[in-house]
Amino acid sequence: MRRSILSVGDWLALPVVAALIALCCAPLLILLAYSFFQVDFVTISHDLTLANYAKIAGSETYRSLIARAFGSALLVVALTAVIAYPVAWFIAKRVHAAKSTLLTLLLVPLYSGDLIRIFAWRVLLGAEGAINRSLMWLNVIDEPLSGLLFSPLATHIALTYNYLPFMVIGLWLAFESLDDRWLEAAADLGAPTHARFLRVILPLTVPGLVAGGLMVFVMVAGDYLTPQLLGGASGITIISAINDLFGTAFDWPLGSAIAWTMLSILMLCFGLGALAIRRSSLVAEDV
């Protein structure tokens, strides 16, 4: 079969790889190059320097913004994991005919787009918004809760809402491949409910937890619109700082360096996560 050097699959992949290189890899590499340049009044000097990275490492503001981005991401991963876990179990193990309908229903709100979903939360959470007005109407509170909108609370509610379906999908896949006979065996051997959960179900769904968690983590850390439009003063994030440096502040090299700092940390997390999934699935096969 080795008549030509490239197989049919290679020929099919070729244009796709070309497009990915042209519009994804090349732009990111140019961004990397810019991160070693510097702004000289209004022009960009092409002498290579590590000054931008030194600036990030030395700046209290940028360090804390980066830490906050990943803190937020971890918090939302934890929230979505707790909320999604029973849902994923239910869809995988307690539903039969309606399975794909439920999954579709879960994904449908995603397709309304970031902007519209954020707008809806603004309507819900605002001082004149649905939740405040309803609580006042019901005489639960006398004046609107002002901390509802334009706060970290609003941001994290909306982030959890936005990325919950991804966590459900990750966990659902893990539950689908979980063999119920493990549970029966554990029960036969006298394991009480909590032991069955902690020592059988939880370890076997770790790959799903990590996969869903990684997706949520990456997307929350990189989310620009949600904190920007719902966070108020807390809406300044490391991602919005990149946006400002490319816009009004006109310091593309520093913006590029921050972007690559974020990308490097994200890639590291992703590598570790992939490793964790591989190891835990090896363990699962060994038992």
Partner: peptide, 8 residues
């Protein structure tokens, strides 16, 4: 992240 790809 979408914004990073956009600036790139």
């Amino acid at each position: 992240p979408r914004l990073i790809l956009a600036v790139a």
